[in-house]
């Protein structure tokens, strides 16, 4: 067992864990934050994407012990965040959700696109989404939602 201390959605957690425990399983099983989903566990599909020190990261191939000292933000950690509220509203309007399994990872990547690439066009949005697989929506609704969010943010600022 190895001790790890992680800030999870603003709350500091210290736990003794097996070194092999992934950050995703730590969040899901130790912290009960089951909004973070795993779907490929080899870093390709993006379902487990969370924010690690304010940048998107794969929690399935990040060890909980290696996240020692980091700040983690999961889908459950956006209370009061206006940007995420706008993204979520756009996802609803654009029908960017079907089964919902890829959605938390998709939101993390959408948040990254919206905050890092305010001028992204549809091609760029698609490229940035390449690391988040969705099997239901065909992505068009998701691209619409992110484009809609960017337009709204541009319009509001």
């Amino acid at each position: 067992m190895t001790s790890t201390t992680i800030s999870v959605n603003g709350r500091t957690v210290t736990a003794d864990v097996e070194p092999r425990l992934s950050l995703a399983d730590f969040l899901r099983e130790h912290e009960g934050l089951t909004g973070t989903h795993t779907a490929c566990e080899h870093g390709v599909c993006g379902a487990c994407t969370i924010m690690l020190d304010d940048r998107p990261a794969r929690s399935c191939i990040t060890l909980a012990v290696a996240a020692h000292g980091a700040e983690v933000r999961t889908v459950e950690g956006y209370d009061g965040d206006e940007t995420m509220a706008t993204i979520r509203e756009s996802f609803k309007k654009a029908h960017a959700v079907q089964c919902g399994y890829c959605t938390p990872g998709m939101l993390a990547t959408a948040y990254d696109i919206v905050t890092r690439l305010p001028d992204a066009d549809r091609d760029r949005i698609r490229l940035e989404l390449a690391g988040n697989l969705c099997r239901c929506t065909g992505y068009i609704g998701i691209v619409d939602a992110i484009e809609m969010t960017l337009a709204e943010i541009r319009g509001g600022s």
Partner: peptide
């Protein structure tokens, strides 16, 4: 908009 969207968007499905 779908009734089920909220829980998926909040990670509470």
């Amino acid at each position: 908009a779908r009734k089920e969207d909220d829980r998926f968007l909040m990670g509470t499905g």
